[in-house]
């Protein structure tokens, strides 16, 4: 198996950028923004796993695992907030949440 690390990194960056693009583009829907964040974090995991394989040590994979856990914590809290705010304001469009500005 001879995939250069750079190819893994490029794939990761494509994924990362797609996730970022998703977050930026889907301003109308928090859920889709969260999905974008998931994609970005997956790209990070890919980088770690790639690095781990490249150097032959387990640390990267560990990091990836922790990111997974972190993501689930984050997502659950975020979704709780979404539900809470949907109850209060009846919208999931982040642009509606602009009572503070300036």
């Amino acid at each position: 198996m001879s995939v250069p690390l750079s190819h893994v990194l490029i794939l990761a960056s494509v994924l990362f950028a797609m996730g970022l693009g998703c977050v930026v583009a889907w301003r109308a829907n928090v859920i889709m923004m969260l999905i974008g964040i998931e994609i970005m974090l997956n790209a990070v995991m890919l980088t770690f796993v790639g690095g781990s394989a490249h150097w032959g040590i387990a640390d990267g994979q560990l990091f990836a695992l922790m990111i997974m856990a972190l993501t689930s914590a984050e997502v659950s809290l975020a979704l709780a907030m979404v539900v809470y705010l949907h109850r209060r304001k009846g919208s999931v469009n982040t642009d509606d949440f602009d009572s503070m500005k300036g």
Binding site: L9, I10, A12, S13, F16, A17, L20, G21, V24, A25
Partner: peptide, 16 residues
């Protein structure tokens, strides 16, 4: 809304 997304996408991918 896609324009900034596409630009950012290209910038990040290109840089990396």
């Amino acid at each position: 809304d896609w324009w900034p997304a596409v630009i950012l996408f290209l910038a990040v991918v290109g840089s990396v």
